[in-house]
Design a protein around this nucleic acid. Sequence first.
DNA 1: AGCAAGATCTTTAAGCGTGATCATATTTTA
DNA 2: TAAAATATGATCACGCTTAAAGATCTTGCT
Lengths: 338, 338
Amino acid sequence: MITLKDLAATLGVSVSTVSKALKDSPEISKDTIARVKEIAKELNYRPNTLALSLKNRKTKTIGVIIPDILNVFFARILYGIEQESTALGYNIITCLSNESFEKENNSLHLLANGSVDGFIMSIAEETQSNGEVKHLKETINQDVPIVMFDRVANDVECDKVIIDDFNAAFKGTEVLIKEGRKKIVLINSLGGLSVGKLRVLGYKKALEQHDSYTGEALVINIDSNEALLNDQLEKIITEHPDMDGLLCIDNVSGIMSVNIAQRLGRKIPKDLSVLGFSSDEISHLSYPQLSTVTQHAEEIGQQSVRMLVERLENKTKGHTTTATVDFTIELRGTTLPN
Amino acid sequence: MITLKDLAATLGVSVSTVSKALKDSPEISKDTIARVKEIAKELNYRPNTLALSLKNRKTKTIGVIIPDILNVFFARILYGIEQESTALGYNIITCLSNESFEKENNSLHLLANGSVDGFIMSIAEETQSNGEVKHLKETINQDVPIVMFDRVANDVECDKVIIDDFNAAFKGTEVLIKEGRKKIVLINSLGGLSVGKLRVLGYKKALEQHDSYTGEALVINIDSNEALLNDQLEKIITEHPDMDGLLCIDNVSGIMSVNIAQRLGRKIPKDLSVLGFSSDEISHLSYPQLSTVTQHAEEIGQQSVRMLVERLENKTKGHTTTATVDFTIELRGTTLPN
DNA sequence: AGCAAGATCTTTAAGCGTGATCATATTTTA
DNA sequence: TAAAATATGATCACGCTTAAAGATCTTGCT
């Protein structure tokens, strides 16, 4: 690695002269500046980011903690985070909590010592169901800000980026109601997560509020293990022959349900209307293509970065914000054309 | 942030005493060690990684460059990388090249200045098709080692982790041949990538070598844009009514083909046997579940980390290795049971 | 012309947080 | 009481920035 010292030595000047020359300081003569720059280029000098970070007490690096990178939703959020950070001149250190509290906790401690300027994270399932928040509060108290997205801890005071899950499910359910469906079922594989709970509430509220819907509300909880998903869904579809509307609130069960229902002889969307929750790319995997409540995952990521950087660079103390990112409902082939 | 200085001040001893005490130096009295440790714990002291990195000239951080995080294959590799790095005490800085040469190049330059000890990467499509290697060679020459996985640059001398793509396609094709299929088609959406080319070669070789196969080889190149995939596949399946074996060499077109073919009235696997290339989780999305040539993505990631760390810690100079990670063929529902 | 006061350019020194080496001070032992 | 053991402190270096000091050359004024 080439350092300022090396440049100084080859030119026979002092380190500080080189340093100043490289940033066009008016203190340094045009001539010297030119000479320094030339040799710097020739030797392919790059300032050592570590040294700069140490000096400036900031790293221009964001710690990102993702619960599950194999979930397209999170992968896409990471994509958004990466894009926006790069645009704003930040790097990201990515940690995968793998839904484990311990890993999440470790990552936080490992990086909250000057390695990153702040965190962007969605909390692990385990953390959420156990209601663990100490590690989060501690980090914030040490002046390392956190922005939480999607899965947030309500009793931690920090910036947040969420979807209006209640409303998303509400509007989604309305789509099915307005089609005149008589038995609309919600399949829930999100277990103890707050987002799942909110979606169930939105679904129930919509059914209640529309007099045109005369059926019952039926929420079926299933195991989220993907290997078991096919069998569970097949069982549900078989056991509910009169089901004509289906709301799947996770990424993949909508796709699977469409494929299974068709194999079992249901016409989609005629006999059964299916609405999933996910982003575009996965909806292509079924035929007809899955209609979805689309969460703008990329936007969630970008927004999170913007909020964190705002806080870092303007030193916004106190006063936290919660941003809600819009959802859209995209009707493709598994619901009736309107 | 709490520093050694802070601890020293509160205890009324010197910084070096604190530093030594924290690492149980025999130079320091039991008594002082205890006192230092107690207050360190109380104030929640964590050594500043940045300062350590600067001092030790190594960061214990790996730069990871991924072409496309929305591709499950890469997401899963990242998963493996993260697991193994954490296990070996390394952090990862993740950059997404998004298949662009420029982003790849930038990331490399941005981090190859002491920010990371080495890189693990798969080169961007653009980089590969243009045959750009200067940035890679430069990095290696600056003594920052690179491990490439999956998509590798043949004329760059570095450690590599690959799949035996030729053989994977060869064996996969053999499965279909042994079923007695008469018209086996390969659908290629991987365009200019080396892996795609190797798979096509393996397929052709298998067809040639088996006298029992009397049909032709037919490679159909398609656009990889997922939004267009459905239509393209439907067209292919419609136009080739006599096709009875299908090899899809990317992640998703196998799934789509199965769903489309069934909708068009083909019985799977009776009329048409389909074999995809992907990892487990995505194969669940079709019914019957897709039979696949499974690439052990996680293992590829882990192996890459092991090779890099080996080089970093043992200062293995010169002498590069290429590791081949096994593939397995997993017959699920879209091929005949054997 | 003579010389203080600027103007211009360069170097010195300190500090970011650590750890290693070397030096110093205090106590114990032979 | 000198030598050895014990405990602590001072200093430097990692690569960089920056305030302050130093050195050299111009300028302006009597």
